[in-house]
Design a protein around this nucleic acid. Sequence first.
DNA 1: GTCTACGATGTAAACGTTTCCAAAAGAATA
DNA 2: TATTCTTTTGGAAACGTTTACATCGTAGAC
Lengths: 342, 342
Amino acid sequence: MSIREVARRAKVSIATVSRTLNNPSTVDFQTAERVRKAVEELRYFPNSQARSLVSGRSRILGLVVSDITNPFFPELVKGFEDIAIERGYEIMVGSTGYRSERMAACVRRLVERKVEGVAVMTSEMDQHLIDLLVTRKIPTVFLDVGSVHQFINNIQVDYATGINQAVEHLLNLGHTRIGFISGPLVLKSANIRRAAFLECLTRTGILEDEELVAEGDHTIDGGLEAMTRLLESKNPPTAVMASNDLTAIGAMRAVRRKGWMVPRDVSVIGFDDIHFAEFVEPPLTTIALSRRELAEKAIHALLQHIDPLRRKKSPHGAEYGVTPTLVVRQSTAAPRKRRHAE
Amino acid sequence: MSIREVARRAKVSIATVSRTLNNPSTVDFQTAERVRKAVEELRYFPNSQARSLVSGRSRILGLVVSDITNPFFPELVKGFEDIAIERGYEIMVGSTGYRSERMAACVRRLVERKVEGVAVMTSEMDQHLIDLLVTRKIPTVFLDVGSVHQFINNIQVDYATGINQAVEHLLNLGHTRIGFISGPLVLKSANIRRAAFLECLTRTGILEDEELVAEGDHTIDGGLEAMTRLLESKNPPTAVMASNDLTAIGAMRAVRRKGWMVPRDVSVIGFDDIHFAEFVEPPLTTIALSRRELAEKAIHALLQHIDPLRRKKSPHGAEYGVTPTLVVRQSTAAPRKRRHAE
DNA sequence: GTCTACGATGTAAACGTTTCCAAAAGAATA
DNA sequence: TATTCTTTTGGAAACGTTTACATCGTAGAC
């Protein structure tokens, strides 16, 4: 059961067993073999709690997401898990459900489990929770909403580039009335995306009309409602961009409900490129944000702190960038002449 | 940082601090208050590794899934997490990616972390891994593929009931040629579903034709391919049931590609009722398998073992049941007369 | 042949808790 | 007043590791 029994069976001390497991080069080959044999025979597995208690390293990374049920996240979790395992870490996932007390409970659990780093891939976090992590010197990486600091990293999505590609795509097709459906504006992250969209649309002189932007809630139903409102205006947009793919899918439904067709009557562009985007009808043109890349950057950022920490010189947090790119599918096309809102 | 500092600040022994945290009734109210104040001021969080090392209870439950990216799982994970947290446990999720060496690594990690129970919600597990868990007296619950044993529980999905409902629904609509697209037959779980479908179809005298059943792989593309094959036969089915929703969605695409329409030319029924089923075009009629219920049953089964274990009388494993039910949406309708395969 | 250095091993002290046991101090009983 | 029982507290041993330090050969250098 414990290292002691392995030691007894291999006729060595527990120290030698430990060394065989962690630092085989420091023990005689013959002895090591004997130990390994004993380990095998007893089916001994080291107790990681004891291990990390004494070594101070839990080898766990925390991942905080808002809602695993949101199709954006599973791929992120998967990437995170794959890479973490590869690097010898485990992950502990927590969903906040957008509720701040769940977020607090989640952080508390991570701290108690002595995670060596936390990736917060959801909307902002209360300052006192951040302090909690910082005072414990736990490296943290945020998505979009973090301000770089000691132990605090941030991954900044370069919205402008992706959105510009999309707008250009629409302009080339001949669109001039381009609408936008945002996420819920209570969320800082939704505001960031909204600001990026509007900034780009106004810069190209496209968006003059207040009527062309609506608020959704990052769900299909929200997108449907928002788009319905947009379509009710006297002069509806000929193309609409959405803050995420679910919203875009909802928007497409709204178009269809009105008896119009995508992309014939309205072009639709999403954001994220969730797996399903490829499989809706018509396949959704969208701005792809690679979850794999997000996961890679996040873990890289965390590890950057962890190893040097052992060497007593922990670097300052850093800013990382991820650039989304347009994926053209079939939900966009040249606009059709319309006389009126029929 | 540690309990010792709290003790010093509250001018008590560490034993008293521990008692205040775990068993407040055994310590004087005034003292307890003093301790709580110190805990608060120092922002002390107990170290769960030390805690579980000595108490022998990790308060972690393991959840093994095949692929978090498969839309069936996120809801399961969510339910599992919610309920576990509620009961004072954490969860540790592992994806196997259908690869047995990943499964082994996953189990190993769970064992090393001393999880108090494991839910294996994926296809079968090698016997030696099961033995690993059993000899360590770690309660386990399987989905469909487990054989009840000491410490081993199983949740049996009552496929017959759900499938019967679906077949009856199709019969009532007037269908007589009903096809079926299975999952990958290398997976035991896919075989179980397939057997249940075929058994039901042959019982009602519906399925005589080998040509009406095809093998998919539980993905959209697999469903598309399989359905395409089915549609190529001289006398294609007027309705098709699929082993899961992704397959059904793929099947619908195949129908559309052929220039036919769902449900006008072919009715389609899925299985699982993933969240997206409601949002495809047309909304998918499917046999709903509640992930929430699965999670509840799984945790219930595990907890059943864990608490009594402390009281030295651990019950034998048990069999639990979950009954899926038909959800009628718009992918099914009465068959249209057809002369030929056009 | 002695000295030094090094490689292989063991001993024991941590790590931060929980919990058993004993002690102390009243309170209740005889 | 002496005894017993509570209630509250502290001391110390465990839990299963890692790791600094000590020990002991043995080989190479002189």
